[in-house]
């Protein structure tokens, strides 16, 4: 059986909010190492991959592999009943028809309990090759969101060009062009404001802004975002979850090719 307790319901609320624009139904795969999720959007352009490690929960127990097939809009309805600071416990039997969610307020003596019906989802798992990316950029997540939203006013696509000079996000559309260039800099007092660029060779790729803006719904989950690029392979956009236990929310986006 699965029994996992999260100190803050907010984490699951935000994860589900961040991915529900891309995916309708998906399996939450539970095993002794934690809860994982991998799903592609309908058009096969973007993929979301989440890992919530057992260490993110206290306690966490899952004796065997359990797939929880969940409709995300139904889960969103149930999670609306959880206050952000509630303690959230997920429970399921070994071959479950439902997942049980309990929300507890630490201040008030209130316990809310919901059973969400599960569905059979026949989902193929994709192998994501370990990639040595040519460039990786670590930057404030709110800055990345701002850039994507601003450039979406200009065009539906953005080119991301990374050289040793910095990273340039550029868009060209009917009304004109726009670009934002970030140079590497470290902020000692506020490390979350630093921009770090790790480059082995220059990269230039184009991506759909509609998807990138969708990914940035994860902004409130982490102060930093990491973009990893290599020419002609999908972009990896990664948010670290719940501080230092290697839990993550990753998005992959297929590039636009040929101009």
């Amino acid at each position: 059986m699965l029994e996992s307790r999260l100190e803050q319901a907010d984490l699951l609320k935000k994860v589900v909010e961040a991915i529900s624009g891309l995916v309708n139904d998906c399996n939450f795969d539970c095993n002794d190492s934690g809860i994982a999720l991998q799903a592609m959007d309908n058009s096969h352009v973007a993929l979301v991959s989440m890992m919530l490690k057992a260490e993110a929960f206290s306690p966490y127990r899952c004796d065997r592999n359990i797939a929880l097939g969940i409709n995300l809009s139904s889960l969103t309805k149930v999670l609306r009943a959880a206050q952000s600071s509630d303690i959230l416990t997920l429970k399921a039997e070994d071959a479950p028809d439902v997942v049980n969610l309990v929300f507890e307020s630490s201040e008030k003596d209130r316990i809310s309990e919901y059973d969400l019906k599960l569905m059979d989802i026949d989902q193929e798992h994709l192998g994501i090759p370990e990639t040595e990316y040519a460039a990786s950029i670590s930057m404030p997540s709110n800055e990345f969101q701002r850039i994507c939203k601003d450039l979406m006013n200009i065009s539906e696509s953005v080119s991301i060009e990374c050289t040793k000079e910095g990273v340039k996000f550029a868009a060209a559309g009917d009304i004109g062009t726009g670009s934002v260039t970030l140079k590497q800099h470290s902020n000692v007092d506020k490390p979350e404001q630093s921009v770090e660029i790790d480059l082995s060779e220059p990269v230039a790729l184009s991506f759909s802004l509609k998807y990138l803006v969708n990914f940035t719904k994860a902004t409130s989950l982490a102060s930093k975002v990491k973009l990893s690029l290599s020419n002609e392979v999908p972009l990896l956009v990664e948010y670290e979850l719940s501080g230092g236990n290697s839990s993550y929310l990753r998005f992959y986006l297929a590039p636009k090719i040929g101009d």
């Binding site: 592609m40 058009s43 096969h44 352009v45 973007a46 993929l47 193929e124 798992h125 994709l126 192998g127 994501i128 090759p129 696509s157 184009s206 759909s208 392979v233 999908p234 992959y252 297929a254 590039p255 636009k256 090719i257 040929g258 101009d259």
Partner: peptide
Amino acid sequence: TAQQSRLDGFFKPK
């Protein structure tokens, strides 16, 4: 104009 590629070409089913 640039064509949107699909992930299937990059990631194969396990």
